[in-house]
């Protein structure tokens, strides 16, 4: 990928030797020029690596479906926007998206709630065993989630009982995805929120408690609003991670939309016995990106406004 930018600069080097020498001379006199050039190079590289796949996807999505399997280049083969409608006609893709959004939303709510309580305790209270407990959270976060899969799968299918109780069947329900994923993404959120909550001055919490809140009230009325950037960060990271998550959401649910199958199942279902509709897959992927992209744009404004209002300035 980087090669495509490289030849360009090379060619300018060799073709206009005089210009280049001049540029080097002026760069020595004015070193800021070099920083600008380096910035441009790096920025172009990153923009290319992030935006090219998106272009590629869009290009395939708009290509003529029947000709995609012949092979694709850098330019679309034909123009056929109908695949954006066809994705909803072939399978109920909106339902798959709904399922994934439900997983992501529920998990985010759970994670933020529990991580807020944990973050409050770790960030603001002094108690014996705080460090070992934080370490334990850290260690658990290092476990590969796949290691939990088999026992959880058996548990959610009611094949084993836990403490003598057989849980309700969670397989193919949001619970089967949301519960393990909440556990998987909790440690990161706990660490982010611990840092943020720990920075809120004690006086503010004391003031809230004197004014009439409980400790919990002070947490949700004062500490959480003042930590908005941190809460937004933890929330977005969790939301995106769960929305994109493949392993649990694929295996803990059935293949049909009514069995709580996630987006991946929807995209896979454009592959039939006789043909693979790459154009539909690409179109579906683009549609699937939209909710997350919207969320990030909205939340980013929130983060920026949180930072600029001087919320943390005493």
């Amino acid at each position: 990928m980087s090669q495509s930018t490289q030849p360009e600069t090379d060619s300018t080097d060799t073709d206009t030797g005089g210009l280049f020498t001049n540029w080097v001379d002026s760069a020595i006199a004015n070193p800021k020029k070099v920083y600008r050039a380096m910035f441009a190079t790096v920025a172009i590289f990153f923009l290319f690596t992030t935006l090219f796949p998106l272009y590629w996807l869009t290009m395939i999505a708009f290509s003529d479906g029947s000709r995609v399997s012949e092979g694709v280049g850098l330019l679309p083969t034909g123009f056929d926007p109908s695949s954006f409608i066809e994705i909803f006609q072939q399978v109920p893709f909106h339902l798959y998206m709904f399922n994934s959004l439900v997983f992501a939303t529920l998990t985010t709510i759970f994670v933020l709630l529990i991580a807020s309580l944990a973050g409050y305790a770790f960030g603001r209270l002094q108690f014996r065993g705080k460090r070992p407990m934080m370490l334990a959270v850290l260690v658990i976060s290092f476990f590969p989630p796949a290691a939990f899969f088999i026992p959880l799968f058996q548990l959610f299918n009611q094949q084993i009982s836990f403490l003598g109780i057989t849980p309700p069947e969670l397989y193919s329900t949001p619970g089967g995805v949301v519960i393990p994923l909440s556990a998987v993404f909790l440690p990161l959120a706990i660490f982010i929120l611990t840092t943020f909550y720990g920075q809120i001055p004690d006086g503010l919490e004391d003031a809230a408690r004197i004014e009439g809140t409980t400790r919990l009230g002070a947490l949700f009325r004062v500490i959480v609003p003042l930590s908005a950037p941190g809460v937004a960060t933890a929330g977005i990271l969790t939301f995106i991670a769960v929305y994109n998550e493949f392993f649990f959401s694929f295996l803990m649910t059935g293949a049909a939309a009514q069995d709580w199958a996630p987006i991946v199942d929807g995209i896979i279902s454009y592959r039939s016995q006789f043909q693979v509709r790459y154009d539909l897959m690409a179109a579906a992927s683009i549609v699937a990106v939209l909710p997350v992209a919207t969320l990030v744009v909205i939340a980013q404004e929130k983060i920026v406004s949180g930072l600029t209002s001087g919320a943390l300035k005493e």
Binding site: L204, A207, A311
Partner: peptide, 10 residues
């Protein structure tokens, strides 16, 4: 009333 004033900044 606190030494660091402790108004809610938000």
């Amino acid at each position: 009333v606190f030494q660091n004033i402790a108004l809610f900044p938000h």
